Simulated scan of single mutants.
Amino acid sequence: MDAYDSRQYWLGRTAVVSASGALDLLTSPRLEKLVTSTLEQRPDALIIDLTDVSFLGSAGMQVLVDAYEATSPNIGFAVVADGPGTSRPLKLIGLTEVFDVVASLQTAVDRLSRGA
């Protein structure tokens, strides 16, 4: 079983929340709490980095949807997901049509810094 962990760091005014391990019904509330506290700090953009997530369950996807909905039009939002455990479920559910899902943190930073 993968141990879940999450952390927050900043790249200028862009907040990055990264998670690792399995993001499921048991662990998603921890990510949700971190995302909420991050948004309270009023970043210009929020990136949720799932690069090290091995499993993304429906509860984890709901956290992503809630985070997207909580970012106002003034806050950029992107999810980094590259791999069968993360990008595939997001594509299957159709969330890649709702918000930006990119393959690397650098791509997310570049896209949000241009406002695209």
Rank of each mutant, 00 (worst) to 15 (best):
R13Q: 14
S6K: 08
D5L: 06
S18V: 00
A19I: 04
T14K: 11
G21E: 11
A22E: 15
M1N: 11
Q8G: 09
R7L: 04
K33P: 03
P29G: 10
S18H: 07
G21W: 12
M1I: 10
M1P: 14
V17R: 08
L26A: 09
G21S: 14
A3G: 11
G21A: 11
V17N: 03
G21K: 10
T14E: 05
G12F: 02
S6N: 14
A15P: 00
A15Y: 02
Y4G: 01
S18T: 13
P29R: 08
L31E: 01
S6G: 02
K33F: 08
S20A: 14
A15H: 04
D24A: 04
V17Q: 03
P29C: 06
R30A: 14
S18I: 01
Q8M: 11
G12M: 03
T14G: 04
Y4S: 00
A3F: 09
L31C: 01
L11H: 08
Y4I: 00
G12P: 00
D2H: 14
T14A: 14
P29T: 07
T14L: 15
A15G: 03
R13I: 05
Y9N: 13
G21H: 11
S20N: 06
R13L: 09
Y9M: 12
L23G: 02
P29A: 07
G12D: 06
A3Y: 06
Y9C: 11
A15D: 01
A15L: 04
D2L: 10
G12C: 00
A19E: 00
K33D: 13
S6H: 08
Q8R: 15
D5T: 09
T27S: 14
A15W: 00
R7E: 15
G12I: 03
V17G: 06
S28R: 05
G12T: 05
D5N: 12
L25D: 07
